[in-house]
Amino acid sequence: MMGKLFKHEFKNTARRYWYMYAIILSLTLFCKILDIIQLNVNSKYLNPPLYISVTFLIIGLFFLVLLTGIFSIIRFYREMVGNQAYITYTLPVEVWKHIFVRLTVSIFWIIISVAVCVISGLIMGAGHDFLGNFLKGFSSMLSSIKTTQQVLFIIQLILSIIINTASSLMMFYMSIAIGQLFNRNKAIAAAGAYVGCNMIMEVFTTLLFVLTAKRIPWILDYNDIGFGAEYFNSGAEFVNSVMLLTGLVNILFLVTFFLITERLLSTKLNIE
């Protein structure tokens, strides 16, 4: 059943995102053509259209990632508590599978959207100094980490971003599940639930770091000779450790939000 859910979810979402990617990549190519012409011709008259096009491209890239997230939230609302929920809950599939598939597919499209942005950036950066400088800077930071841990650092960075994204999305889903409990103004109730959950999460995270700082000296006492210095060879390793702890906290949040969402939609469903 999970495979079939994935199949239909990918099919139903792909048609929307392909259009957006096609538009962004077409705009990128257009900007790059203008850029190449300008590099060769160096005419002041080409600057305005080039700058305007690049501005539109940057705005487009920003909205691409933003809209990918927004679409996934709207789709979850529509299909799990909105009009199309009638079809969703008619299917003989456990609720947790519906949630899991939608979360996974949403993360997939966010990753693809980010990848499209990176590709767009690489295309525009090709032949310019800033791309080379950026890559040199990143490489310099990596070289401060022990060679054997560099790959681990990159993997951890990517996983942290994915887990953080999943946790953020799941909080939206949980807010929607809380909002549907209300008989009226479900969307407003969901927004209120999101604000409330955010506040609770912030308080929890702050308390967690304050309470663990003294017990795990390497979190806050990096510059203190008496505590943290022997644990790190570099700032990158300090970042590595913070990423690890943040990742663990985000996994905890992700699982908690998932369980709450599943329970609410399984036992307290209120589709009107």
Partner: peptide, 17 residues
Amino acid sequence: VESKKVISYLTDKDALD
């Protein structure tokens, strides 16, 4: 899940995408 396998439901609302 088990009950949904044996019920065919026509909704009062048009929920088609």
